[in-house]
Computed example of a mutant assay.
Amino acid sequence: MTQLSPADTAKNAAAIAAVALVRDGMRLGLGSGSTAAFMVRRLAERVEAEGLQLRCAATSQATADLATRLGIRIEGLDEIGWLDLTLDGADELDPDLNLIKGGGAALLREKIVACASDRMVVMADGTKVVDRLGAFHLPVEVIAFGWQTTRELICRALARLDLTERPILLRKHDDQPLLTDEGNYILDLALEAIPDPHALSQALNEIPGVVENGLFLNLCDLALIGQPDGNVTELEAIQEGLE
């Protein structure tokens, strides 16, 4: 294997720990992004070595293409039904295991797959762990029709939450609006900090034209944080109502 950078060593370590949770016969959601790519490669190695029989749904076309090249059969989520486990990355992760996702523009499929799973496990390196969400731009997926009106409605919603004068950027690729796998646009909200993620998520999803936002709240059950030395730290969600 090519010598990995410290950052990639951390991602790979988290991916190895995540793939160790996979059991034969599982129905899996395979996430998107650089850490998830390590996970798909490590999973393919186990499939080949152990002959694991898995049913896998991908959160993006890029993940589906990579998995298929490596010998992992990808099915549609509706073909599989409910999933046992989803393994995915995150752009930010707070102490309550709330996440910002969508840096790779796959947030809609990622959230659908996460919500269709008994358990969501997140893999990340230590740089993704923050005290409060928001330094990473919050992606919001919107339909192309009337997107500038949608952006204005988002501005008004932010003002009601005292998040005024925050830039809202249309994500582009080759000087054209980037299109998600579903053919939508991404607006990136430069918020700096999000005091109340639940209030913001609700406000955004009430806006016509907003398809979904990149706040993943109360979805992650376990976070595996890889370190540059190859060690992994586990952060587990606190179950409400337990002593």
Rank of each mutant, 00 (worst) to 15 (best):
D181P: 06
A144F: 06
P197A: 03
D174C: 09
Q148D: 04
D188H: 06
R151S: 09
F145V: 04
G126D: 14
L179P: 00
A135K: 13
D125L: 01
L187V: 12
V130W: 02
D196V: 06
D174T: 04
T164D: 09
E110C: 13
C155D: 15
K128N: 07
D188R: 10
I143W: 01
L200S: 11
I168P: 02
L158W: 11
A199G: 14
K172D: 06
D118I: 01
T127Y: 10
Q176M: 15
G102T: 13
Q148R: 14
I186K: 03
G146F: 04
I100M: 03
D175C: 07
G104Y: 10
K172F: 00
G134Q: 04
A193W: 01
N184D: 13
M120C: 14
R171M: 08
D118G: 10
I143S: 00
V142R: 07
G126A: 15
V130P: 05
L163S: 10
D181C: 06
L200W: 10
K101V: 09
L187I: 05
V121L: 12
L189H: 09
I100W: 01
M123N: 01
R132I: 05
L170W: 10
G183T: 07
W147K: 00
G102F: 07
I194Q: 05
M123S: 03
Y185M: 01
L133E: 00
L178R: 03
G146V: 04
N184S: 13
D174Q: 13
P195Q: 06
L169D: 09
K172L: 10
W147T: 03
L178Y: 04
V129I: 14
G104M: 06
V142W: 09
H137S: 14
D131F: 02
P195V: 09
M123A: 08
I143T: 13
A157E: 12
L200P: 01
A114F: 04
A114W: 08
Y185K: 00
V140R: 11
L138Q: 05
V129W: 06
I112R: 03
L153K: 14
L158M: 14
G146R: 01
L161P: 01
P167G: 12
A199F: 10
R171G: 02
F136L: 00
L179Y: 00
A135E: 13
D131T: 12
V122W: 09
T150P: 11
A190Y: 08
L178H: 03
L153S: 13
D174W: 06
R132M: 08
K111L: 04
V140D: 01
I100C: 03
L163E: 06
M120I: 13
A144N: 02
A116H: 12
T150V: 14
G126E: 15
T127R: 15
A116K: 11
Q148M: 07
E152S: 07
G102K: 04
L153V: 00
C115G: 15
C115A: 15
D118S: 11
I112F: 04
S117K: 05
I194N: 02
D175G: 07
L163V: 09
D188E: 13
L200T: 08
L170T: 01
P139Y: 08
L99I: 11
L163A: 08
C155K: 15
T164H: 08
N98P: 09
Q148T: 12
L200Q: 07
C115P: 02
H137C: 06
E110L: 08
K128C: 01
D175M: 10
D188T: 10
V121F: 08
L161S: 05
E110V: 11
